[in-house]
Design a protein around this nucleic acid. Sequence first.
DNA 1: GCACCTATGGGGAATATCCCCCAATCGTTC
DNA 2: GAACGATTGGGGGATATTCCCCATAGGTGC
Lengths: 210, 210
Amino acid sequence: MSPIRVVLADDHPVVRAGIRNLLEKVVDIEVVGEASTGQEALRLVNDVTPDVLLLDMELPDIKGTEVAQKLQSSKSPVKILALSAYDDGVYIRELLELGAAGYLIKEEAPETIVEAVRGVAYGEQGWVSRRIAAQMVSWVRGDEREGLKLTAREMEVLKHVVGGKTNQNIAAALGISEKTIEKYMEAIFAKLGVASRVEAAVYAVREGLF
Amino acid sequence: MSPIRVVLADDHPVVRAGIRNLLEKVVDIEVVGEASTGQEALRLVNDVTPDVLLLDMELPDIKGTEVAQKLQSSKSPVKILALSAYDDGVYIRELLELGAAGYLIKEEAPETIVEAVRGVAYGEQGWVSRRIAAQMVSWVRGDEREGLKLTAREMEVLKHVVGGKTNQNIAAALGISEKTIEKYMEAIFAKLGVASRVEAAVYAVREGLF
DNA sequence: GCACCTATGGGGAATATCCCCCAATCGTTC
DNA sequence: GAACGATTGGGGGATATTCCCCATAGGTGC
């Protein structure tokens, strides 16, 4: 059987080296490319058509979720195995909804990563870390607060809030009315369950939304 | 000559594996221990007395700066080489003031890490990444804002700000006038170099002040 | 002793924020 | 085609924030 072909995407050379070393210890996996940015990752996947893309969420240019989205819409057959330092709910939800085959956190034991790569390569879906699984339980278990998901526009506004912008600034930046920004603020507060822009910003930073 | 003995402290197994692999490729370096928490790192350094401690700043239990401080006050001869994903000024300053031998960012090329370990082991001081060096230039160059350090009271106020409290709330909580809180806010903004409570809160969360 | 920092407070005014009210358009979904 | 969500916008008003002005009292340092 031919080996599983893997592309690594992570902005830290050390992390890439670590994973590459890890995967190449086993005979049935071959690392066929490394990318340090989202753009590179997309290009590489197109060029070398790997079986699995090990995709870090914290890339400098494009967000991991966007990379996944682009691959999904381009009907790429690559299996995406997301890798993140954080177990933040928003990312996980988004990723899995975008059809990622799995989601691992970096605290994971090295052997688990090998297992996961092998698993998704052979078609397993929903390969997630134990801690992620625990978190997903809470979503299913009653507190399925639909509101958690911000719209694209709301996320954009929130990003500016975190950047310390005033409603006026944000309105100018987005080219829409300040009144509309106020509307978004209200929606954001309601969805995040907070009562002020400061709390919203703190929430966003803590959850690693940006 | 006996090899350089190194202890790795990082909460991500993958990162540890990567660095270990990297360092063990060269004959004059030996990894004699791995820690995933600050406590473990402290214990390991005492037990195996390595030459160099490669210390990640984002540990789950104790902050990297505290680990450095404890080692410093216990007169440990270990050379601390700080490792962080971020080039944030506060950490760097604190670390270097605590006598860390160097500060690397994870974006660093693998070979540089080997060089840095070797450098500090042989007594070099102030081994920093190029990007860090660039940042330090701005500190030296005139804008030597000593004010960066907040007073105890200011920290207390800032903590409440992060908690989403209004000036009125904070005044009530601290049993002082709202007007005084306003004064503290102005001082905090000036010292942190921000222009609003939102920015101050975001700064505090990002720097892990609480 | 005098300068300096920390902590405390008042007055006033220009903005900014937040929370209600109201509404239209466009796309998807049932 | 009707209902829903996403996006856009207006009006009005109660608070909150920020930035100036001013001040006093206590501690530390040289």
